[in-house]
Amino acid sequence: DVEPGKFYKGVVTRIEKYGAFINLNEQVRGLLRPRDMISLRAENLNVGDEIIVQAIDVRPEKREIDFKYIP
């Protein structure tokens, strides 16, 4: 289970104008929005990159997770 405030290692699987999709594993995926990329620009991300993200909002009923990148 993903808990708000905890840090996780994930892999960038898709990049859109509104953010990057980060997979923690095959069943868990969330969104890293540009406003939550402190000191990281979306254009510096590539599909396949491994990054550490913090879960900031977890909505299990919608199967949605928002992440924040903190260097």
Rank of each mutant, 00 (worst) to 15 (best):
F67C: 06
E26Q: 12
L24M: 03
Y18G: 07
E61P: 05
P60S: 09
I65C: 10
E43S: 12
V28L: 13
A42T: 15
V11A: 02
R29Y: 09
N46D: 07
E43R: 11
F67L: 09
N46K: 15
G10L: 05
E26T: 13
R41H: 11
G48N: 02
E16I: 07
Y69R: 03
E43A: 13
N23T: 14
R14Y: 05
R33Q: 06
F7Q: 04
V53D: 00
R29Q: 14
Y18D: 08
R33N: 06
F7V: 05
E64R: 08
I15F: 03
I38Q: 12
L45C: 06
F21I: 14
K68S: 09
L32I: 08
P34S: 14
L31V: 07
D49E: 06
G48K: 01
R35T: 10
D49P: 00
D57K: 15
K9T: 09
R33V: 09
F67I: 04
V12C: 02
R63V: 06
F67E: 03
G19N: 03
T13H: 04
Q27N: 14
G48H: 01
D49V: 05
K68M: 12
F21G: 01
F67R: 02
G5W: 04
E16W: 13
Q54P: 01
Q54A: 04
N25R: 06
R33K: 08
E3A: 09
Q27W: 15
E61G: 12
K9G: 02
V58Y: 09
V58E: 02
L24G: 00
V58K: 03
A55I: 15
A42M: 15
N44Q: 15
I65A: 04
R63H: 12
N46A: 14
E26H: 13
E16H: 09
Q27E: 12
E64N: 07
E50H: 14
L31Q: 04
Q54V: 10
E16M: 13
E61F: 04
K68I: 11
N44T: 13
L45M: 07
E61V: 08
D1E: 12
A42F: 15
L40V: 09
R14P: 01
V47K: 03
R63Q: 13
N23F: 09
I70E: 08
K9N: 06
F67V: 05
D49I: 05
K68R: 15
V58A: 04
L31M: 08
V12P: 00
R33P: 05
S39N: 15
P71A: 14
K17D: 10
G10I: 04
I22M: 01
I51Y: 02
V11E: 03
K68G: 11
I52M: 10
R14L: 08
Y8T: 01
V2Y: 08
E43V: 12
K68F: 08
F21K: 01
K17Q: 10
E3L: 14
F21A: 01
G5P: 02
Q27L: 12
N44V: 10
D1S: 14
V58N: 04
R14S: 12
G10H: 00
P60D: 06
R63M: 12
E61D: 14
I51R: 00
S39P: 15
R59V: 03
N23M: 14
L45I: 12
K6P: 03
N23Q: 14
I56G: 03
D1K: 13
G19F: 10
P71F: 09
E50S: 13
Y8Q: 01
I38L: 09
N25P: 03
D1A: 14
G30T: 02
K68T: 06
T13W: 03
V47D: 01
V28P: 02
E3M: 13
V2T: 03
L40I: 13
K62L: 13
G30P: 02
G30M: 05
M37N: 07
D1P: 13
N44I: 09
K62Q: 10
G5D: 04
S39H: 14
E50V: 15
A42Y: 15
P4I: 15
R14M: 06
R14W: 07
V58C: 09
M37I: 08
K62Y: 08
I56A: 06
N25H: 07
G19H: 08
E43N: 11
K17S: 13
E43C: 14
P71M: 12
A42S: 12
G19Q: 07
E3V: 15
A42E: 08
Q54L: 15
I65Q: 02
K9E: 04
I51T: 00
L31P: 04
E16D: 13
G10R: 00
R35H: 11
V58L: 05
S39I: 11
F21H: 06
I52W: 15
A42L: 15
Q27R: 14
I15V: 10
F7I: 08
V53E: 00
F67G: 03
M37Q: 05
K9A: 06
R63L: 10
E26P: 14
V58R: 04
D49A: 06
L24T: 01
Y18T: 06
R14H: 08
S39Q: 14
E50T: 15
T13C: 09
I65M: 04
I65P: 04
R33G: 07
I52E: 04
V28T: 11
